[in-house]
Amino acid sequence: MIRKVVYSIFLAIIVLSLVLFFAAFPFGKNKMTVGKYYIDHGVQQTGAANIVTSVVLDYRGFDTLGEVSVLFAAAAGVGVLLHMIGERRERKVKVPPNFVVRVGSRIVFPFILLFGVYIFVHGHLTPGGGFQGGSIIASGFLLLYLAYPNYKLKRGGLAAIEGLAGLTFVTLGLYGLLTPKVSFLYNFLPMGVFNTLVSAGILPIIYVAIGFKVASEFAGIIDDMICDVMCRGGEK
């Protein structure tokens, strides 16, 4: 009883402070200075039709490099933790997937890849981008893992793709230091025609690199986790 009272008091405090906190911000009236700047100047300065991309990759490109590194650290952590526990063994599946799932996943898989590539190639034009497209591609690989118990990604190839993609991102950023406007991740390529595939300078290239990187990292995480889970299931 006392517990419930204490819980409700705490809940009331949290809700009240949140309400007061958000009530202090005017909603939908004057945009904050930074947001207004992005909306007013984003299209002219970056040439990207998707304003989120112009913020994520251009104004805050350095943050995104950090984000990619965080994701890399997370993937590495998953791998290290799961491999610390025991050796990798053959996957054993109690009930193999049936014919319908095997054939269906074969039909759907190329379309999932296509959709993922579309999402990250059009990252500067439509909602979406490297992170989203990469996750979609990784989900396609998850489907193959589920449908084929013997399926196995080559980890060496994944690591090579991941490394190359990361290298592309950093190299593009470093090249900005060589341009007259000495700054990291400076958008040195021409803007191109607004709202076409080849526009916004280096942003699409960076998003393609991020797409490859995220896809290979997530596929690696899936490989680590599914193998470990399946091995443990087979042990019982």
Binding site: N98, V100, V101, G104, I107
Partner: peptide, 10 residues
């Protein structure tokens, strides 16, 4: 049509 029946059957 392609995915929903496959998923539900699985």
């Amino acid at each position: 049509l392609l995915t929903a029946p496959i998923g539900s059957s699985a």
